[in-house]
């Protein structure tokens, strides 16, 4: 029983990362209709930057978190301003997808050049000894990971529903034309969305890397898992992204007990894709989003 729960926990840890990636993709998609596959790459980039910051400058692992969040939200706004917004003005959505795939490749290349084909990790935020609860072994970092996801979800919800910038962002997401007529600067709202996605990439990368090892090859699987989670949850739905991510991780973990990991992953994905046959808009998506 306890190692069955351990499988679930391991799956949920994977799921938290997928959920954070999917959430970033979802925020960007809902506001600018861009599917940013590069989000998976930024997570690994943030992780390895944090590792270098920690080992190079001797900063404590926990302290790298706010630093990375600031750097990556500002950095993503820069990337959006310099690369994505100009491209979005000219390219069709399909071409724009290619742009983000290209960015994903570029991030992978940057990681390879900067960090080589080697796995990296750093110490946990708060002690390496796992907490033992009822025969379960819980690395303390799991709590940080779950916390990062919770903070992202809650913070995003508060921002979107309780502030007027949030209102303007939701208006932009719903109908950019109508929003612009009210004097909302739609481009600025989109930049904010990219900044939020950057912050989430930093949260995900910095929090996950102490549990695991990351290297440049992790970029693509993360992008794919995040994308599947976002689509299954309902592209543009933040709740959906989180549900899709956690579900994908959970199913992988549980199936992995019985089958080869590849088969487990394939089955988990197939099961989620089957959801799309029944609900093409995804679990939490609204039909109008699909049509658009």
């Amino acid at each position: 029983m306890s190692d069955y729960l351990q499988s679930i926990l391991g799956g949920l840890a994977d799921g938290c990362v997928y959920a954070l990636i999917a959430l970033g993709m979802s925020v960007i998609y809902s506001i600018s209709r861009i599917i940013s596959l590069a989000q998976g790459g930024f997570v690994v980039l943030a992780a390895l930057c944090a590792v270098s910051l920690q080992s190079g400058l001797g900063i404590s692992p926990l302290a790298t978190l706010p630093i990375m969040v600031v750097i990556f939200s500002v950095g993503m706004i820069g990337v959006a301003q310099i690369v994505i917004q100009p491209a979005a003005k000219r390219a069709t959505p399909e071409r724009l997808l290619l742009v983000t795939v290209g960015m994903l490749q570029a991030v992978g290349g940057l990681l390879l050049i900067g960090w080589g084909n080697l796995p990296y990790t750093m110490p946990a935020f708060t002690g390496d000894a796992p907490v033992k609860v009822a025969g379960l072994s819980l690395p303390t970092q799991y709590f940080w990971l779950a916390g990062a996801l919770a903070v992202s979800v809650l913070g995003l919800w508060l921002l979107l529903t309780k502030t007027d910038i949030g209102l303007a962002m939701r208006a932009t997401a719903s109908n950019p034309g109508a929003a612009a007529l009210q004097g909302i600067r739609v481009d600025r709202m989109r930049l904010i969305a990219f900044g939020l996605a950057g912050a989430m990439a930093a949260l995900a990368g910095t929090t996950i890397v102490p549990i695991t090892f990351l290297q440049f090859t992790t970029v693509t699987p993360y992008a794919v898992a995040g994308f599947i989670a976002a689509v299954v949850g309902g592209l543009g739905s933040n709740m959906g992204a989180v549900t899709g991510g956690l579900l994908l991780g959970l199913l992988q973990g549980v199936f992995g007990r019985y089958w080869n990991a590849d088969l487990a992953q394939l089955t988990a994905i197939a099961l989620l894709v089957a959801v799309l046959v029944i609900r093409p808009q995804g679990i939490f998506g609204t039909p109008e989003r699909v049509r658009r």
Partner: peptide
């Protein structure tokens, strides 16, 4: 009007 927002939210905009 902005479709997914409520009447109040639209007016607030």
């Amino acid at each position: 009007l902005v479709p997914s927002l409520t009447v109040r939210e639209n007016v607030m905009l």
